[in-house]
Design a binder for these strands. Structure first.
Lengths: 348, 348
DNA sequence: CTTGTATGTGCACACGGTTACAATATTGAA
DNA sequence: TTCAATATTGTAACCGTGTGCACATACAAG
């Protein structure tokens, strides 16, 4: 049933080598035979056997993506989902398939990163990695030894030197700083910060940006102004509900929520007690996920340039795969950008 | 670098055939040599070359999933995202990788379904297919001819006979009926229906269920009570905003929104004009996505048993792959189930 | 008519496994 | 002790494609 180059060779009356060369557009074949062979291939509906091809070329035409396990439920982090879409889009253009895997396979003892690489199903690896401690040194050593091209997206392990690893990511410190500074410039002095539990470097840095902006504007930092949740709507909602007395008592007017989802929750909670945004509270989110445009008021937020992130990541990965000689790693931090919308207002 | 069975053979002092047999747990090898060889493989960190293996066995260990193109943005349809997660989970248990593809590759002329199958990167295909007309007859013929096992999930082409195609899906008619009947039983007589534009069979059937329930309860169906949007929050929001006068004038009290996202938008819109759910309006959604638990009030909705859908689908696909003899196709319609929460109330 | 140079094609092996079949070793019964 | 039966291992072909090298052909130059 399945047609092979040998079948074509037989029909065309040439060797399978010539067929192979023809279909790969080698200049070693005369133009007319090439044409004849291609025509035959077309009429037979020939397609290369990817496995045989991979076996002899050591190229698979598929890229592996390690996606954060906790975001396994697509939609839990709409930002990362969106990033994934961007990457997929780029890879599709290159006719690359993608296998999405999770750093830990709950059902097997062995790391499936290892399996994916060693079994040679992929040409390269994109590691989306939001946490400080997720990737251990062992895997890093393994990756280096295995010589599969890989690139970190959005973060890289803290034990790596900046110059020793390819990585594309955004400036979370700057984002946190800008969000906070913006609120301060709008006249807000009492600004709380809603961040995430856990070991995510991105939140850690955003919070540092918040602190730095306060400090630069001579506003005293108050540890009690930091609240922690799980980066989802309900967390933002709960935090506000549970701390409303405190927030009113302290005269809070500005809120920096470190995910858009939390910001949505915050706004929900405020609505329930008849407080309005931006009239009573000014709020800045983070991520600029599509979803926020579906809520009123439209959220002022920090946009992470995911198109650019995806582009740079894939671009560099292809360089690595194609063995482009570079004497240094590519380690780029992209600026996040504040998008002004309707969730803040100037106060006296 | 990469260790092969021949390397192991050399070290163990046996032929590579013996190594192959050992690592595949063949009974043809003596227990102690088998053990010895496995140990060597472990210490060397051996892993099969998937391509070589696929080439000779004709099995790839990866499953293709055709995911609706318009949901390419993961998160656009949280229901389908969640379904995808369930499937992935099942496949992971079986140590299967998954390649997610989209029915049309915007960047190449040829169908990438064809490429995926012909290039033999996958063992089987799950087609998530929400529309009536997406899959054309040509592809169907192609699928049949190529003899790659495939199964439709969530719908199957309307030109197929029930008994001629494997498919797992839910009862959208019943879901629409139950949602509407529930509202009627709560005392609502003026119930609008918010559905989707386009050719999705699921929405068509849900609407039919709505009509049937009305009819059974002797409530006259009114074409003007049907509103159409794009299954997202903003559509629900806009529809309410744009038609509020009409809705008030007609004394509407019940709303059947055919996606949870639209229901969320509806509630948002009502809040903005100080109407409350369920006090002023009772609303029933559809899908039971996780997100709705993050909003107040918690939405009464129609739950589609996605765990079961995913399980049955994968299970059957593996049957097909493993050549289990069955003399008929598996074509199962699962019941959707109404989940009572806080977005409706009984009226006089 | 040689010789040299391009150009086009085929042969044969490689890629890393699986597996039918042959070959050898071991065992147990007669 | 002998021999068949059984258990274990090796040999070689095969899966479908790519490619270095040898070879054949054509054509221009000498």
């Amino acid at each position: 049933m399945k047609v092979t180059i040998k079948d074509i060779a037989k029909i065309a009356g040439v060797s399978h080598a010539t067929v192979s060369r023809s279909l790969n557009d080698s200049h070693l074949v005369a133009e007319d035979t090439k044409k004849r062979i291609k025509d035959i291939a077309d009429t037979l509906g020939f397609e290369f056997n990817a496995n045989a091809r991979s076996l002899s070329t050591n190229k698979t035409g598929t890229i592996g993506i390690i996606y954060p396990e906790r975001f396994g439920e697509f939609g839990v982090s709409l930002y990362y989902s969106s990033l994934l879409t961007q990457i997929r889009d780029y890879l599709e253009k290159e006719e690359m398939d993608t296998i999405v895997a999770f750093p830990k396979n709950r059902y097997s003892k062995d790391s499936n990163i290892k399996r994916l690489i060693l079994s040679r199903k992929i040409d390269g690896l994109i590691i989306i990695h939001p946490n400080i401690n997720d990737v251990d040194q062992k895997i890093m050593n393994f990756l280096e030894k295995s010589r599969v091209p890989y690139i970190f997206l959005h973060h890289y392990p803290s034990f790596c030197d900046v110059d020793s690893v390819d990585a594309i990511y955004t400036d979370h410190f700057g984002g946190g700083y800008d969000a906070t500074e913006y609120l301060i410039k709008q006249g807000h002095k009492n600004i709380i910060c809603i961040t995430s539990h856990g070991d995510s470097r991105e939140f850690y840095q955003r919070t540092n940006g918040y602190k730095a902006a306060l400090s630069d504007k001579n506003i005293k930092f108050n540890e009690n102004y930091i609240f922690r949740g799980y980066r989802d709507i309900i967390s933002g909602f709960r935090i506000m509900k549970d701390n409303m007395d405190f927030i009113i008592e302290k005269g809070i007017t500005g809120i920096f929520a470190q995910t858009d989802l939390m910001a949505i929750g915050v706004i929900q909670a405020l609505k329930e007690i008849d407080k309005s945004v931006p009239k009573d509270y000014s709020i800045v989110g983070y991520d600029d996920i599509e979803l926020i445009m579906e809520f009123k008021p439209n959220l002022t937020t920090i946009h992470q340039p995911r198109e650019e992130i995806a582009f740079l990541t894939c671009d560099r990965l292809f360089e690595l795969i194609n063995g482009v000689k570079t004497n240094s790693k590519v380690n780029i931090m992209l600026k996040a950008k504040l998008i002004e919308r309707d969730s803040t207002r100037k106060i006296i």
